[in-house]
Design a protein around this nucleic acid. Structure first.
Lengths: 249, 249
DNA sequence: CAAATAGTGTCTGTTAGACATTATGGG
DNA sequence: CCCATAATGTCTAACAGACACTATTTG
């Protein structure tokens, strides 16, 4: 697995920008911060979770122009004193009340004219939310916030359909060579539940024996000893993700 | 291959930003573009090429504070009326005089305080330059611009070492499942030259027979019929990349 | 004992990697 | 004919995918 739990940590710390066009200035004091017109910068966060055995994302309904009444990916301005990741976490907190989730920077969209109000550059993050912790807040959703299946999306504001397309592809790609899937599950889970994560994201059925063989031989799972009993059938072993074996996937 | 030649084309066109915090405004006319303080946005471009059988990148020497005298990745402000990609292309053009190269958005760094002058958010792109076309301009390099081996870098301004680390990892990863390597070669090339690209980027030797078998069975190469004769030995077949077979890699 | 889901192994085709010799051109 | 590099095939181990039956629990 390439990413840390908070995927951008290792990179966004103290990385500095080059400022080639400023080079004619020879002293800090000569630099005029108001010399150039500046774009607005926002952060949008694609929040995904497994709900009702489906891969769903959180959208908000726009209450004003432009695209009034349409659904959109939640986002907001980056404050002058907060990092991009902090802004994304704030957005997450505001919309879902959840903290400490998998968060990864996806892509930055910055075409002029993309927002009719002013020049807006948006950095898109995506977050994966553990289905169990999310249940708590599920009921508190306001009327203009909703979870939607990524496979049955409503018409979206701006070009958000493309962003989601991109997100889903990224998620699918990383599923194979990272441990990203565990972020969608509670701490303990059964192999069947893990298989379901893969099936829902890839949108196709997998062979149970091959799946279990593949996962178990990597040694990435740890048997908790506990079992999950539900319904009238044989109980399933509960496993937990073993971060120490992360490199094996 | 996931990326197009200009990798961001399919995504950066007409994608729009959400602006959750603006929702209290109900009419366009009420929106005050000067309401919030805004960060500066720059684009940095990591330009890579194969030179002297080495993977090299272009750096510029800083002439002013901060990090005066240190080497840095070239970059500059994004103009209000140009897209991020256009800004990156402009940067490329200014530094190398080359157009129509592989260009891909990498990551956006935006921590506050990363630039002591003001809040600067930088979108980092990386470009791969065909070694042959580059030769033309090689001599015109000014004293404060230089090509450096990614394996022997000078001390870098800001946290540019981390950016390059990230870039190199991305390049290595994509080498396996995309046709990115062809962007470092002229239109026609021998199998040995292609192998060398892989060897230099992975920084280890590859087995000639296995490499050729793997590449040729994908059908991604087209025999031009021509041969490359140089030195006192058997001439090598010249191939060309067949974009129609791109999906096979 | 019926219903429901958990749990398990074999065979086969494909792929990755180790490895050595012959071919063809120029001087 | 010498030198230098191009070009080629086989064997083996690991992995991916197809495929069917037994185990354990509740009611």
């Amino acid at each position: 697995m390439e990413e840390q739990r908070i995927a951008t940590d290792s990179l966004s710390e103290s990385v500095e920008a080059t400022t080639g066009t400023m080079e004619q200035e020879s002293e800090a004091i000569h630099y005029d911060v108001n010399k150039y017109e500046r774009p607005s910068v926002t952060v949008d966060v694609v929040m995904m979770s497994l709900r009702q055995r489906d891969l769903q994302i959180l959208l908000i309904k726009r209450r004003s122009w432009p695209y009034e009444g349409m659904w959109a990916i939640p986002g907001g301005f980056v404050n002058m004193d907060e990092s991009l990741e902090t802004a994304a976490k704030r957005e997450l907190q505001e919309e879902t009340g959840v903290q400490d989730v998998y968060l990864e920077q996806l892509y930055t969209f910055g075409d002029p004219g993309r927002d009719p109000r002013t020049r807006v550059i948006t950095v898109v993050y995506f977050a994966l939310l553990d289905s169990e912790r999310l249940q708590v807040r599920a009921a508190s959703d306001a009327a203009d916030v909703g979870w939607f299946s990524v496979y049955e999306l409503p018409p979206l504001a701006f070009d958000h359909a493309k962003i989601l397309d991109y997100t889903l592809n990224r998620l699918r790609g990383k599923l194979e060579y990272t441990t990203i899937a565990f972020n969608l599950l509670p701490e303990q889970f059964t192999l069947r539940e893990l298989q379901r994560v893969y099936e829902i994201i890839h949108h196709r059925r997998l062979d149970k024996r091959n799946f279990r063989k593949k996962i178990l031989t990597t040694g990435i799972l740890e048997d908790t000893g506990a079992k999950k009993m539900e319904g009238t059938h044989r109980p399933a072993r509960l496993y937990r993700f073993n971060p120490a074996a992360e490199h094996k996937l």
